[in-house]
Computed example of a mutant assay.
Amino acid sequence: MKRLIIPFIATLALPVQAAAIAQLKAFVAGTQTVSAQFEQTVTNQKHREQAHGTLEISRPGKFRWSYAKPFEQLIIGDGKRLWIYDKELAQVTSRPLDSALGSSPAALLAGSNAIERNYTLKEAGTADGLEWLNATPRQADNTFQSLKMGFSGNTLKEMRLGDSFGNTTQIRFTSVTKNPVLPAGSFSFNPPKGVDVLSE
């Protein structure tokens, strides 16, 4: 089964009553680093895949997603390149970060401040105890066709995505820490000896 990887995460520190769009904009404007744990579920008509792990973000453009189960994978954005290391397959994929992310949610949360340049934002009300927004990509060729973000207690708690391959992804975040001090080495990657490296 093909593994479905969607690296992105953030947290916010805002008044409890703030609407979702205001919280997202404040995060992009003021949050430089984030650490958290995540649980991810990807479903389509044939499969349901669950994964969990930890992540770190250092804006702009640096992030580290570490998948612990069911497969060990490491995804690193070092500011210039995106690295995906699949331990089981002994394979590393590397490509320029800008072309790899485009206007994806990872670029939105870990990249520049140009949220509304790439997405149309709309308040989506309250559901499941969270304040939601819809973010619709402005580019028709964007991989993600829909993106919802849910907030509660000053923190991004959940993201729901629909992609052009018919997958629905739900990511729930826990143990979120805003602006921690993160080691610079977290965002560098050197391929282990003996692995295949596919590079663009």
Rank of each mutant, 00 (worst) to 15 (best):
Ser146Pro: 02
Thr155Val: 12
Gln32His: 09
Ser164Phe: 11
Thr174Phe: 06
Ile76Tyr: 06
Lys148Phe: 02
Gln40Ala: 07
Val197Met: 08
Gly77Lys: 07
Ile9Val: 14
Asp128Glu: 15
Leu108His: 02
Thr177Tyr: 02
Leu101Met: 15
Asn167Glu: 09
Leu74Asp: 02
Gly30Asp: 08
His52Glu: 08
Pro7Cys: 10
Tyr67Asp: 04
Asn142Trp: 05
Glu158Trp: 01
Arg160Ile: 08
Phe63Gln: 03
Glu200His: 09
Pro180Cys: 05
Gln40Asp: 05
Ala135Cys: 09
Val197Asn: 04
Asn179Pro: 00
Gln17Ala: 13
Arg81Trp: 01
Asn113Gly: 14
Thr136Ala: 00
Ala124Val: 06
Glu158Arg: 14
Val176Ala: 14
Leu156Arg: 03
Phe187Ala: 03
Asp78Val: 04
Gln32Ser: 10
Tyr67Lys: 00
Leu89Ile: 10
Lys69Ala: 15
Ser175Cys: 01
Glu131Trp: 01
Thr43Ile: 05
Thr155Leu: 15
Ala22Asn: 08
Asn167Phe: 06
His47Met: 06
Asn154Thr: 14
Ile6Trp: 03
Trp65Asp: 07
Phe63Ala: 08
Ser99Glu: 11
Ser175Leu: 07
Leu14Val: 13
Leu108Ser: 03
Ala110Ile: 06
Gln23Met: 11
Pro60Ile: 11
Leu161Pro: 02
Leu97Phe: 08
Gly77Met: 09
Lys25Phe: 05
Asn113Val: 05
Tyr85Ala: 14
Arg172Val: 12
Lys80Asn: 12
Arg81Tyr: 13
Leu147Phe: 07
Tyr67Glu: 07
Pro60Phe: 07
Asn190Met: 11
Val195Cys: 05
His47Phe: 07
Val181Cys: 04
Ser112Arg: 12
Leu14Gln: 12
His52Phe: 13
Ser94Arg: 02
Gly185Ser: 06
Ser103Gly: 14
Ile115Pro: 00
Phe38Tyr: 10
Ser35Ala: 12
Arg138Met: 05
Ala135Pro: 08
Ala135Met: 12
Ile76Met: 07
Arg81Gly: 01
Phe189Met: 00
Phe187Asp: 06
Phe151Cys: 10
Val34Tyr: 02
Glu88Tyr: 00
Arg160Ser: 01
Asp141His: 13
Ala36Trp: 04
Tyr67Met: 03
Ala114Arg: 15
Gln17His: 13
Arg48Thr: 14
Glu49Arg: 02
Pro192Ala: 10
Val181Thr: 14
Leu133Cys: 04
Thr41Phe: 00
Glu72Gln: 15
Pro15Thr: 04
Leu97Lys: 08
Ala68Thr: 13
Lys122Ser: 15
Val92Trp: 10
Ser146Lys: 03
Ala29Gly: 10
Gly166Ile: 07
Arg95Ala: 14
Thr155Ser: 15
Glu200Trp: 01
Leu182Tyr: 09
Ser58Trp: 10
Ala29Glu: 15
Leu121Arg: 05
Lys87Glu: 12
Leu133Trp: 03
Thr155Ala: 13
Ala127Thr: 05
Ser188Val: 13
Leu55Val: 15
Gln139Phe: 08
Arg138Ser: 05
Ala90Leu: 09
Ala29Ile: 00
Asp86Tyr: 06
Gln50Leu: 06
Gly162Gln: 15
Ala107Thr: 06
Leu4Ile: 12
Ala100Tyr: 09
Glu88Val: 02
Gln37Pro: 01
